[in-house]
Design a protein around this nucleic acid. Structure first.
Length: 369
RNA sequence: GGAGGGAUUCCCGAGUGGUCAAAGGGGACGGGCUGUAAACCCGUUGCGGUAACGCUUCGAAGGUUCAAAUCCUUCUCCCUCCA
């Protein structure tokens, strides 16, 4: 079944409960999407991802274009076949790399001219090319190519950048070959300027995108500014299409933005932080490296049902981590992703019961105590 | 018995008269990570003090010198080679 979004209900707080249907399966929202930039959620097998309950993961156009190259993935039968994942995949367009690899990028009307961070070779990522690559990957949800300006850019820059993103968005829609096969989301920019956000949201809402994302946040601005900006944007997005806040975030960020009407999130935090020893539990953050865990033979979180907490102690995990044993990265990633995915399960349940605000307060009361 | 080489701050290891509380690794300790150039990055690591600065330290004990981890003497221990 081609892409579809059904909004089941909206909680009194503003939180939305919905369901996305794609050719490769359904995704209940609000949802969290683990990031698998290079066709792998680092350290995990796809079986482990399924067991965790991940319904959709991310891949990245820029990175897969450079290595192994989309033609290889296409030859393998698409990214799903290539990586042995049969559930939906959302692919980012490479727009974020315009920001994170800015030193290697020159922006033109035609597209983003990159020097590969791997070998220095030149590549032009145009809107058409970004769609072409994502189609070759056979992405379920493609993202339009956008420019993600840094947080410190002045209004004039952001306004022009936003206009470029709109022109690119239209070109992406033009370039898409099969709307039944590959959904396409537009990305709202506008920095932290409420009026620009409103304008851009309205511009993109008028276009036939399957969903709309909010980009250009969590790039260094204050948290409160991020929340305010989302709040200034979502009222101008169509209610019958999913809203995706890109690159966010910490547990509080997820809850604050769900309350502001966001349906989808992705973030590297659970996976990256797992690999740097920062673990999420309902009672807050545990830094597994800390000496206090040396002789602590209890699990990270006694109430957690993840495979790591069911079987291993903090002392052992700390030992694995300090020894740089590969098992550490896998076990800790399993735990963190379980935490994020489970948080979203609880959120969905709370919305169904019209008690999101209560859930949020109680959760943060424990988590940030 | 003879000839050489060596002992440095938790570990390895640089330093061969002042710019040395002593490079660089490692380890330890703490922190950071928000559409992943990330199994990564940053900071601290003799004692005291906010700091200026003071004190103690380079196997041990003496000595030379304005000044010693660096030079001299003796001692202790370790290594290599020859008998």
């Amino acid at each position: 079944m081609p892409f579809q979004f059904v909004l089941h209900k909206t909680d009194p707080s503003g939180a939305r409960r919905g369901r996305i249907t794609t050719n490769r399966g359904e995704i209940d929202t609000p949802c969290f999407m683990p990031v698998g930039t290079l066709g792998s959620v680092k350290s995990l097998s796809t079986d482990e991802l399924k067991d965790l309950g991940a319904k959709i993961i991310l891949g990245n156009t820029y990175h897969l274009m450079l290595r192994p190259g989309e033609e290889i993935v296409s030859e393998a039968g698409g990214l799903h076949r290539f990586m042995n994942w049969d559930r939906p995949i959302l692919t980012d367009s490479g727009g974020f790399q315009v920001f994170s690899l800015a030193r290697l990028v020159r922006l033109q009307e035609e597209g983003a001219e990159f020097r590969s961070h791997i070998d220095g070779s030149a590549h032009l990522l145009s809107p058409e090319r970004a769609v072409e690559i994502q189609e070759a990957l056979d992405s379920d949800i493609m993202m339009a190519l956008d420019e993600c300006p840094a947080a410190d850019k002045p209004r004039e820059y952001v306004e022009q950048s936003m206009a470029l993103t709109t022109r690119w968005a239209k070109r992406c829609l033009e370039a898409r070959r099969d709307a039944e096969r590959n959904a396409l989301f537009g990305i709202v920019q506008g920095g932290v300027f409420s009026d620009l956000r409103k304008r851009h949201a309205q511009e993109l809402a008028a276009l036939p995108f399957d969903g709309l994302a909010i980009g250009g946040l969590s790039v260094g601005e204050e948290n409160a500014v991020m929340y305010d900006t989302v709040e200034a944007t979502t009222p101008h997005l169509p209610t019958d299409r999913p809203r995706y806040l890109m690159g966010v975030g910490e547990p509080r960020d997820l809850l604050e933005n769900i309350e502001r009407g966001i349906d989808m999130f992705d973030c590297v935090i659970p996976t990256r932080c797992a690999r740097t020893g920062r673990l999420y539990t309902r009672h807050g953050i545990v830094n597994i490296k800390n000496a206090a865990n040396t002789r602590d033979f209890s699990p990270l979180d006694p109430d957690c049902t993840c495979p790591t907490c069911r079987n291993y102690s903090k002392a052992y995990l700390r030992h694995l981590f300090l020894s740089k044993e590969l098992l550490a990265y896998r076990l800790l990633t399993l735990h963190n992703l379980h935490f994020f995915l489970d948080l979203m399960r609880q959120v969905r349940e709370a919305i169904e019961n019209d008690r999101f605000a209560t859930f949020k307060r109680e959760f943060l009361g424990d988590f940030e105590a």
